[in-house]
Amino acid sequence: MLTIKISSLDALPAAAEQVRAAIQGHSIVCFEGEMGAGKTTFIKALCRSLGVQEEVSSPTFSLVNEYRTGQDQPVYHFDFYRLNHPREAEGIGALEYFDSGYLCLIEWPSRIEALLPPDRLLLTLTVTGPSSRELRIEN
């Protein structure tokens, strides 16, 4: 387990670089944290560190957004907050995305727990102050 202290928004790029190194070799990266903890904000910083040029935004209504890294590899960003049942994720082809081998960044993974492969990383963001967070990375 790795814990990263994020003191402010200015510390996000450095934290994203640490996470980028920690996720090497993993394609499924799950983000948990209360509403407003900064999951999407952190994913934006992580995508920037991966060389994503396009706008990174929460796929709250579309469920999945696709971005391209600096090496032209796809990154899939999921937000399953609005799902009522894992079948809804199956309906958008989530299992195919998960099996693709490409990086899948998943917000609210507990909503689709039954669909997730066992080989995944869990990143938990905890609010520690008005603009500070603690990020815990677990296998």
Rank of each mutant, 00 (worst) to 15 (best):
T3D: 11
I4S: 10
D10W: 00
A11D: 15
P13K: 09
A15Y: 10
A15H: 05
A16M: 05
E17K: 15
E17R: 15
E17P: 07
V19S: 05
R20K: 14
A21L: 15
A22T: 12
I23N: 09
S27Q: 14
S27T: 14
I28M: 12
V29Y: 02
C30P: 06
C30K: 08
F31I: 09
E32H: 14
E34M: 04
G36L: 10
A37Y: 12
G38I: 02
G38N: 03
T40F: 10
T41K: 07
F42P: 09
A45L: 06
L46I: 02
L46F: 01
R48C: 00
S49R: 05
Q53D: 12
Q53S: 14
E54N: 07
E55M: 07
V56S: 00
V56E: 01
T60Y: 04
V64L: 10
N65D: 07
E66M: 11
Y67W: 05
Y67C: 07
G70C: 06
G70E: 07
G70Q: 01
Q71M: 00
P74K: 02
V75S: 01
V75L: 10
Y76H: 03
Y81W: 10
L83C: 11
H85A: 14
R87C: 00
A89N: 04
A89H: 01
A89V: 06
E90F: 10
E90C: 13
G93T: 08
A94D: 05
A94M: 15
E96M: 08
Y97T: 01
F98V: 01
F98R: 04
D99S: 15
S100P: 06
Y102T: 08
L105D: 02
I106R: 09
I106G: 06
E107V: 07
W108M: 11
W108T: 06
I112H: 06
A114D: 14
L115K: 02
R120E: 02
L121W: 07
L122T: 15
L123T: 05
L123E: 07
L123C: 14
T124H: 14
T126R: 13
V127T: 15
T128V: 10
T128D: 00
G129W: 09
S132A: 14
R133W: 08
R133N: 03
E134I: 05
L135F: 08
R136N: 10
